[in-house]
C-alpha cells in the first residue's frame, strides 16, 4: 500500500536542508518500525518521495511525504489514526505528522501535482504598513527580478508567479499565493521585491498550504482534520 502524510517543519529544525530532512525521514521510518518497500539493486533505498523542496530556513505546516509500504502490507494492517503520533514520536522535535492517508493508485506524484503554495512572510523589522505596501506588487503588469540560479544570471518577469498577496487578519504577516510550476518565485525572492528597505534574510517564511488544481478549483493536497490545528504545534525555541 502507499501512504501520503502531511507534516510540519517548524522551529530550530527550519535550518536543516531538504536533503537533511529526507535522511531524517528514512531514520524515523525505521525507528517507527514501518515496513517500507525498497528499491532493487546493490544499494536498496527506501521508497519514499518528497514534494517540492522547502528552502533551508523556511518553515512549513504543509510538507508532504509519500511512502510506499512492502507489497504484502494491506491497508487494513495500518492504523491511519494512530500513525501520525507514531511517526511524530520517531521524528525530531519540530517535525510533526498532522495527518496520514492512503494514496490511491494512479494519483500523480507530489512534484507533478502541486500547482501553487500559500506562504506567510513576516519579520520583527516589518510593520503592518510594510505588508500593505507589499500588496502593491500586484499592480504592475510586469515585475522583473534579476536572479542567479545555478550560476546563471537572468532577468525574469515574475509577476505571473504571484497569484495573490494580502495581509493576514492580524496585519502582521503577508499572505502570498505563489505558482510552483516552471521557474517558481521563492519566498526569499518575493521578500526582496516586497521589502527592498530591509535585508531579505531577516524575513521569515512559513508554507501553510500546497494546492492541486481540479476542474479549475484548487484543493489542498491533504486538508487538516477539523480537530488538528497545526499552529498549536509551534515549537518554542
Amino acid at each position: 500500500m502507499k501512504l501520503r502524510v502531511r507534516a510540519t517543519k517548524i522551529g530550530k529544525v527550519r535550518f536543516t536542508s531538504h536533503r537533511d530532512a529526507a535522511r531524517m525521514w528514512e531514520r524515523a521510518l525505521r525507528r517507527a518500525g514501518l515496513p517500507v518497500a525498497f528499491t532493487e539493486g546493490f544499494t536498496p533505498r527506501p521508497k519514499i518521495s518528497f514534494g517540492l523542496a522547502l528552502p533551508t530556513g523556511a518553515e512549513s505546516i504543509a510538507e508532504y511525504v509519500d511512502i510506499e509500504l512492502q507489497r504484502e502490507i494491506a491497508a487494513a494492517d495500518v492504523d491511519l489514526d494512530t500513525l501520525p503520533a507514531r511517526l511524530s514520536d520517531a521524528l525530531p522535535t519540530g517535525f510533526d505528522v498532522l495527518v496520514a492517508a492512503e494514496r490511491e493508485p494512479g494519483v500523480d506524484s507530489l512534484q507533478e501535482a502541486v500547482t501553487s503554495c500559500t506562504w506567510e512572510l513576516w519579520s520583527p523589522l516589518l510593520t503592518a504598513a510594510d505588508h500593505l505596501d507589499a500588496c502593491r506588487l500586484l499592480e504592475p503588469a510586469e515585475l522583473v527580478l534579476e536572479r542567479e540560479r545555478k550560476g546563471k544570471r537572468s532577468a525574469d518577469d515574475v509577476r505571473p508567479m504571484i497569484l495573490d498577496l494580502r495581509p493576514d487578519p492580524s496585519g502582521d504577516r503577508l499572505v502570498a499565493d505563489l505558482v510552483t510550476i516552471g521557474r517558481a518565485l521563492r519566498p526569499g525572492e518575493l521578500a526582496e521585491l516586497a521589502y527592498p528597505h530591509i535585508d531579505a534574510r531577516d524575513v521569515r517564511a512559513l508554507r501553510t498550504h500546497q494546492w492541486l488544481d481540479h476542474d479549475g478549483m484548487r484543493h489542498e493536497v491533504l486538508a487538516l482534520p477539523a480537530d488538528v490545528d497545526a499552529r498549536t504545534q509551534w515549537v518554542l525555541a
Binding site: 530550530k12 535550518f15 531577516d202
Partner: peptide, 22 residues
Amino acid sequence: WARIEPLLARVQKPARYIGCED
C-alpha cells in the same frame, strides 16, 4: 537563541548550530 537565529540566516550550513539531535 533569539540573537543567534538571525545570524543563522546569513551563514552556510546553519544546521550545524541548532542542536536538536536525537
